[in-house]
Computed example of a mutant assay.
Amino acid sequence: MPSKLTHEEAEALVISDDPEHPANLISELCRDFYKLGWVTGTGGGISIRQGEHVYLAPSGVQKERIKPEHIFVLPFAQSSVPKPGSKRDFLRIPSKKGLSESQCTPLFWNAFTMRQAGACIHTHSQHAVMLTLLHPRDAQSFKISHQEMIKGVRIGGVGKTLSFFNTLEIPIIDNTAVEEDLTESMAAAMEEYPDAPAILVRRHGVYVWGNTWEQAKTQSECLDYLFEIAVKMLLAKLPLVGDN
């Protein structure tokens, strides 16, 4: 168990004049993602790991109105690996009533522990959702090649960037009624597809990670572009993989 912090020490974790501080970044990025339609209706979110601290956007709040004081802070070294229904260790819990930790917490931990990621973004992008709907119900993954934006995506989300001629493959898992319950199927897909930089969730959205928040953001943007063009290609009956 982490040592208990005083109120002042806990508050100091989210108070900073540095625009690059995770609490400030999460607030700013959520506003940007809201404008893109990725985190509307309180859904979606982002978590950033800085050293031994994990900063987490809250659930149950309009994402474009998040402030640094709304951010949860957890020690990366938990008493037990976060899983559905498990109790988490916290360094800081916001005092504002009605806020709760994100249901995405154990899924973010998948990215932190299985890919050593420094940040993970979850969006409810309509492009991601539509793409999963256009794939057959039993499709296990999405593939696309010969697209320039593939060059902005990294192997496994944290390795070398792909080339124009590489085929990008991202697993698709089925949605669940409770978001936490996606934890095991996400982990299984990450094990089966070690080169995948993200996980698509049918009728729900996508999880994307990176070594840093910058890389996670870049890859989220590149992938969203690829999801959108893939939807248009499928509707136009164009092959996703090939040189057309």
Results as ranks from 00 to 15, higher is better:
V158G: 08
F227G: 05
Y55N: 14
H122N: 00
M233R: 11
A139M: 01
D243E: 07
L133E: 14
P171A: 02
L134S: 13
E228T: 08
P2H: 09
F165Q: 07
Q126L: 10
V231E: 02
D18T: 02
E228C: 15
N24W: 05
F112H: 03
T183G: 00
M190H: 04
L162W: 09
C222F: 13
Y193L: 14
L162G: 11
P136T: 02
Q140S: 12
V231M: 02
E9C: 02
A57S: 15
L91R: 10
H146N: 14
E28N: 10
H122P: 00
D18I: 09
V39K: 08
K143C: 13
Y207L: 01
S125E: 04
E192K: 12
G118Q: 03
L29A: 12
L182I: 11
L74D: 06
P136I: 03
K4I: 14
R65P: 11
E184L: 09
P2V: 11
Q116I: 13
E28I: 11
A57I: 05
K87E: 15
R92A: 04
Q116Y: 14
P19C: 03
T42E: 12
R31A: 15
T183W: 00
E180P: 00
D224E: 06
F112Q: 01
L235K: 08
G118C: 03
E52M: 12
E191L: 15
H122C: 00
T132D: 02
I46F: 02
V73F: 12
A57P: 03
L25V: 15
Q126S: 14
I15L: 14
K97N: 15
P2Q: 10
T40M: 12
G152A: 05
H124P: 01
V14R: 04
W209H: 01
H53G: 13
T218A: 13
H124S: 01
N166H: 15
G156A: 04
V81C: 10
S145M: 03
G205S: 05
Q140W: 09
K83N: 15
V158H: 08
V129N: 07
H7M: 10
L56H: 15
E184K: 04
G98S: 04
V54G: 05
C30V: 10
L235Y: 13
W109V: 04
I48K: 07
L223I: 13
L134K: 07
L240Q: 06
E101V: 09
A187R: 04
L238I: 12
W209I: 01
S79L: 15
R49I: 05
H146C: 15
H124K: 05
T161G: 10
H127Q: 13
A117P: 03
R202D: 00
P197M: 07
E9W: 03
T161A: 12
L56Q: 06
V129T: 09
L223T: 11
G157S: 04
H53A: 13
S79D: 10
L99P: 04
L25S: 15
E9L: 05
I26G: 00
I121M: 06
A216T: 05
